[in-house]
Design a binder for these strands. Structure first.
Length: 201
DNA sequence: CGACCGATCGTCT
DNA sequence: GACGATCGGTCGA
């Protein structure tokens, strides 16, 4: 079990990082309660040239300021007034690349995650979807700007590896308003995994 | 199944 | 004042 360091997030090719992040583990530790899950679905947001990115054309606002922070910073924002969405900032400072984590497969602390989530329609919805996984792992807007090289939230590698043919791509979800860039295949997921959101294909 | 709808509120114009 | 990088529910075929 190896914690990913800043070097990993500093890589310049966000698509390479995205593929490598599939299968890695998000671990949170709050008040000595540990929960974790394996990343099975994510989306790349390719900085200022990406029409679907909050940082399109170099836009800077109070909300997205953290996107311009150093590699390995957590960018958490609230969507639809309810859901806390968790992103990892990559590339060097002032290059606002972000990777949205969309789903994980639960590992440690399932009991605690179920407590945080409440009543569910099925076992897979525990950590399926960006709003759901954040809630299950206890990640909230309070962690916006936190460095993922610290001890509260970090990404770990347990040696798990995925063959290239298990990695699928598709357009990103919920970004229709981004026009042409909404069609880019920047969503990555593990083919066949039950925790991947959207309809199975 | 698929289509649609309401909740809910911070952010940006 | 309008609008989400969502979710969970309902309704009809």
């Amino acid at each position: 079990m190896k914690k990913l360091t800043k070097d990993f997030f500093l890589q310049e090719n966000i698509f390479e990082i995205s593929k490598e992040l599939l299968g890695k583990i998000i671990v949170t530790k709050f008040d000595d309660i540990i929960t974790s899950g394996r990343i099975v679905e994510l989306e790349a947001y390719n900085g200022i040239v990406d029409g679907a990115s909050h940082a399109y054309k170099g836009k800077r606002t109070m909300r997205n300021e953290v996107m311009y922070a150093e590699a390995g910073t957590a960018y958490v924002y609230i969507c639809y007034g309810i859901h806390h969405l968790f992103n990892i900032i990559t590339n060097k400072k002032d290059t606002p690349h972000a990777i949205l984590i969309r789903s994980v497969e639960p590992m440690d602390g399932k009991k605690e995650m179920m407590k945080r989530r409440g009543v569910l329609k099925d076992e897979y919805s525990l950590t399926k979807g960006p709003g759901s996984l954040s809630k299950a792992l206890g990640i909230s807007i309070a962690h916006n700007g936190l460095l993922l090289t610290g001890k509260n939230i970090f990404i770990a590698d347990d040696g798990f590896s995925i063959s290239e043919n298990k990695i699928a791509t598709s357009p990103r979800i919920g970004v229709e308003s981004a026009g042409k860039d909404a069609l880019l295949p920047y969503r990555y997921y593990i083919r066949g995994n039950k925790y991947v959101s959207g309809k199975p294909k």
